[in-house]
Each structure stands twice: as structure tokens, then as C-alpha cells.
Design a protein around this nucleic acid. Structure first.
Lengths: 193, 193
DNA sequence: CGAAAATTTGACATGACTCAACTGGAGTGG
DNA sequence: CCACTCCAGTTGAGTCATGTCAAATTTTCG
């Protein structure tokens, strides 16, 4: 198991000493996931939070009509989990599915709690991580309630340029909250400008 | 300054000892705010996070057309701040305005950092606080991209029953992302069912 | 290669916005 | 206590944004 990447990731927030690294490593489990494979399905409790070493995931909800709605994408050096289910230990309403063959490092809730208890530094790190995610999500909410679909699409491309050539427009449409057909019309409209 | 309320609030997460309470108290500043008064305006850096002792606030963005878009309400025992501006120390794009005469307890960023450094327990508490806020925000994003305006309105009433009889429909409309006129039609449609 | 998924297109339906007008409180000052 | 203003809420007509459905075409991946 190669953990240099996650160590590097944490070091962007606070450097870890050997003891912390050792404890962290002992709690992580590496997992290889194939394209289209699920690491969480509706009805299951989200038992792990996952650090993406390589690959790409989407987390989404399926509504009563069977339509998927993408809540989040995660690529290398990102995290993915249904945090609500993970902490409450209640069944999730979400799916997490690999969009590419991927490698992840997983940690369970009991192990994460141990990590927090042994090294409060991890409380700090995850507080900052989640604060950043929270601020990004606030921007998204503001966009959703104040912008047109075209503006949301353009902003998506600007905010996540690395995803543009990596995921299909169907996935982007689901993320910004429009139908694939309408996104196609938006794209046509943009290129004709 | 009465700090029993905020102590109580923190105790829901982890009990505080006397030393922690004393340090916390020394960093808090009480402030009385009149109805329609701002505690943050666009262009200013958000210098404090505020705990609401009593009253009600809205945080919103004003778009290029001058329309307000409500990102968040906060009432008694809630928190309010532009966390992005607060941490980056860059000018905010948001306004925070009192909807009622209110009392708040404020803490600055340097003081909060001191608190974190002296007592890692506060890292833990704020991590959990922000995790909960994050999960709520995720639900809101999912609603925004998957539901009709009527569904969002009904869900708002169910999720925040205490706000229903406390803020105007104009404010609710701005929060769920529709015009006040259209919300009026939604309400008419609901009552006729 | 072959099947499944992604993308595009068009006709039509519906959701939601705009604008303007009107109504009815809730303050406010004389 | 009245007249006044201001703001919230409602209504309707017209318009624009976006969804639905079906079909044709292209791309992707096993």
C-alpha cells in the first residue's frame, strides 16, 4: 500500500510526525475498484470515508422517477463518503460509483474516532478540510438559486477544468441540475457565439 | 454578558471544563443589533463568527440585477458568518442582516485560533458543528437540482417549522430560489388541494 | 465487431419569471 | 386618532427557460 500520496495531502494542512503517520497507516485499507462498481448503495450504511488515490467517483441520489442527481465528483486527492450516513450510522439514500477504474484508501468510523482521540491534530485537519468543502458547497447553492443553467455550466467548466474532458456531459448535466438534452442545447448555443 | 446559552450549546457536543469556559468567555464579545442592521456587507472582510443568542439573521448575495438571494438564516443557538471570507481574509460578496432585533456573541479569527491552539477540544467541537452544517447543505443542493419549486417550499416548511411564522414569504422565496410572485402562486395552489 | 451509452435535434408541453396593477396590513408622523 | 407611506402579498397576461418524448446519429468500450 502506497500512502505517500495521502501523507502529502495531509501535509498541505499540517505536517505529520512519524507516530501519526504510523497510526494513520495502520487504519487505512487499500481497495481497487472497477469502473461502474459501487462503493455505497442506497439502503446501506456508509461504513468508510474514502481517499481517492487514483480514478474518479460520482455520488448521487436516484429520485422516484429513477433519475440520477449527482451531488459530488471526486478525483485523485479528493475524499468521498456520505458523511451524514457515516456519522449517524443510518442507511444512506445515496450511491457512490466509480466512473473509472480507481484506487482508494478507506477508513472506518471506529478507526477514525481512534485517530481523532490519539491525535487531536486530525480533528484540526479534518475541520479545515470540511470547512473548505462547506464553503465550496455554499457557492454551489448560491449558483443554483441565482443563475441560469448556462451560467452554471460555464461556471462548472471554469471551476473544474480537469473534469471537463474526463466525464460525460450526461454526468455534468446531472450535477448542474438540467436534463442532458437541454445541456446539449446550451452547448450548441455557446459554441455558436 | 450571559454566556450560559453558548456553554449549553457547546455541551451538546462535549462538556467544557472551567478553564475552557473561562478562556472562551474572555474571547467573546456581546453585541446588540437592531432590525435591518448589517453585521457584514459586501466588500468587507468577515472579521467575526457570530453565535446568535436571540433574534434572527439572513445571509445573502445581491446579484448584478440587484436581486437578493438568501444563502442562510440563523436564529437562537445558531451560528452565522461568511466562513470563506473569515478564513481567507478576503472581501466578502455577502451581506448579513438582522431580520429582528438580536443579541449575538462574536469571536475574531485570531481569538478563535488561540482557542483552537489552547484547547484542541474546540477543533473537535467545530469540526462536528461544520460537519452537520455540511450535511444539511448537501441535502439542500440535492433538493435544488432534483425538485420543483413547490417541493422545495413544502420541504422548507417541514425542515424549518420555527421559521414559517417568523419570516416573510419574500425571504422564503429568496431562499428556495423562486420569485415572490411565483411562491404566492405555489401557496395558492397548495391551499386549494 | 457489436451492444450500450452518449449526444444531438425537433416539436411540443410546462415551469417559472417579468411586469404591472391592486389589496391590505403595519408602522409613523402630524 | 387619522392620513400616509411602505412593504408584503396576490393576481393575471404574456414571455422565456427548461423539461419531455421520440428518433436519428455518433461514440465508447467490452
Amino acid at each position: 500500500m502506497n500512502i505517500t500520496q495521502i501523507i502529502e495531502h495531509f501535509s498541505n494542512y499540517t505536517p505529520l510526525n512519524n507516530e501519526e503517520i504510523e497510526c494513520l497507516e495502520s487504519k487505512l485499507t487499500e481497495r481497487k475498484v472497477k469502473r461502474r462498481q459501487f462503493i455505497l448503495q442506497e439502503g446501506d450504511v456508509c461504513k468508510h470515508i474514502s481517499f481517492v488515490v487514483s480514478g474518479c467517483f460520482k455520488m448521487y441520489k436516484v429520485d422516484t422517477k429513477g433519475t440520477e442527481h449527482n451531488l459530488q465528483f471526486s478525483i485523485e486527492n479528493g475524499w468521498i463518503a456520505d458523511l451524514g450516513s457515516f456519522h449517524s450510522e443510518k442507511p444512506s439514500e445515496l450511491y457512490i460509483e466509480a466512473l473509472e477504474a480507481s484506487t482508494i484508501l478507506q477508513i472506518t468510523r471506529p478507526d477514525l474516532i481512534l485517530l481523532y482521540t490519539n491525535f487531536p491534530k486530525f480533528d484540526r485537519i479534518f475541520r479545515v478540510l470540511i470547512e473548505n468543502a462547506f464553503v465550496s458547497l455554499q457557492k454551489r447553492v448560491l449558483q443554483n438559486i441565482s443563475s441560469t443553467a448556462e451560467e452554471r455550466y460555464v461556471d462548472f467548466l471554469k471551476t473544474y477544468p480537469s473534469l471537463f474532458n474526463r466525464i460525460s456531459n450526461v454526468q455534468i448535466a446531472s450535477y448542474i441540475g438540467v436534463t442532458p438534452e437541454f445541456l446539449s442545447k446550451i452547448r450548441k448555443n455557446i459554441t455558436s457565439k
